[in-house]
Design a binder for these strands. Structure first.
Lengths: 210, 210
DNA sequence: ACCTGAACACCGTTCAAGT
DNA sequence: ACCTGAACACCGTTCAAGT
């Protein structure tokens, strides 16, 4: 028996495919405006299908969230593999970390689902989460090999850093703009290069002084 | 009109006070085992009162959580004031940060309620949260004045660091033991003293190598 | 294969009546 | 002043019946 749950799949029949696509589109919209706890009933209604149809395609909320963000995750990982041969591994790592935080902040509440996914092997997310962690682990070890990042750091900790930064961004209004102040602090703590210098070579003033 | 909601108060009448105390005791227990989303109904039942009685004393879940942890918060702040005149302000700051993370991890889900509290002025928590933030801000500015901590750091960011570390601890099984690896990374990123050295003067190996 | 929606389950919160 | 618990509201999920 296969313990990993089957991911949502686009149906073959025309009407099913139509519904599947509409639900996905509506769900994306709903999650973005109301967060990952958006009402299933409402999504079904807005998609013009009965609630049972929604559950027919996406057996759990988590499965729907997964399907909704599958593309972005694939893109993130592809990008991570692409920049793996960057001459400056630290720059590549930082670049990827920022994009990873962006991904985890696709909508409110997503980062919670994601972290649950990585710890729960029966989760619809687990495969995706693991791929993401592996991708970060690769960039990390490259940066460590080049001596730019301290070696006492594991890939799980990197994942924690990313999710923590994403969590702060969605919970602290001040941090909701593009850059994650927390991540930059992390980067400073991680790198072995001259301390008190982030990737841009300077520190931003605290929010309260802008 | 006073917009800040009245905190839960111990009633004067004997039977009311008995119920109030029992509810508080049961709630503490329930939150610790089931997290801050523990069923109100169950708490009332276990306390041997009707659900209406619970709401009579604690108008919202948040109010109950606040009352449940009020003592610890007071202790945390008192401690922060006590160590403010430590000859080593950085050590004092770090000590307090660790205790603050502990406090925010009193039970699962608490840190979410807390961060909402600091951003929402109508919250039952807001007064407590602000006091906590002020306490940290004080220790921070002392450490900054002594040149041990970089100056481009605000108190809100410190609060974010604490809550992020607490959030990771309650979401990542690896980090659930006493120390918060994330916090230590932060500390490294914060301090102006020789990089790649935390307060103990060395780095712990990553979890995966222990 | 896929869709439907009534039915079930569960839980938080309120409020009129009681002591 | 405080307590009671039925009643209300809301929402997620299932499943027997239909196309």
């Amino acid at each position: 028996v296969d313990s990993t749950p089957r991911l949502a799949r686009r149906p073959t029949r025309a009407d099913g495919r139509r519904n599947y696509d509409t639900i996905l589109r509506v769900a994306r919209q709903a999650f973005e405006t109301k967060g990952s706890a958006a009402s299933m009933e409402e999504i079904a209604q807005d998609a013009g299908v009965a609630i049972g149809t929604l559950y027919g395609h996406f057996s759990t909320r988590e499965s729907l969230i997964e399907a909704t963000t599958r593309e972005s995750l694939t893109t993130l990982i592809a990008h991570g593999e692409l920049i793996a041969d960057d001459p400056d591994p630290l720059a590549a790592l930082i670049d990827w970390l920022r994009k990873a935080v962006d991904f985890c902040s696709t909508f409110r509440g997503m980062v919670v689902t994601l972290t649950q996914g990585i710890h729960d092997e029966t989760s619809h997310w687990h495969t995706g989460c693991s791929a993401m962690e592996r991708c970060g682990a690769n960039l990390l070890s490259l940066a460590q090999a080049s001596g730019q990042v301290r070696r006492d750091l594991g890939s799980r900790e990197l994942f924690d850093v990313v999710s923590a930064a994403a969590w702060v961004r969605e919970n602290s209004p001040d941090d909701s703009d593009g850059s994650s102040r927390l991540l930059e602090l992390f980067v400073d703590g991680i790198s072995t290069t001259s301390q008190a210098q982030n990737a841009d070579g300077f520190h931003d003033p605290p929010v309260s002084e802008r």
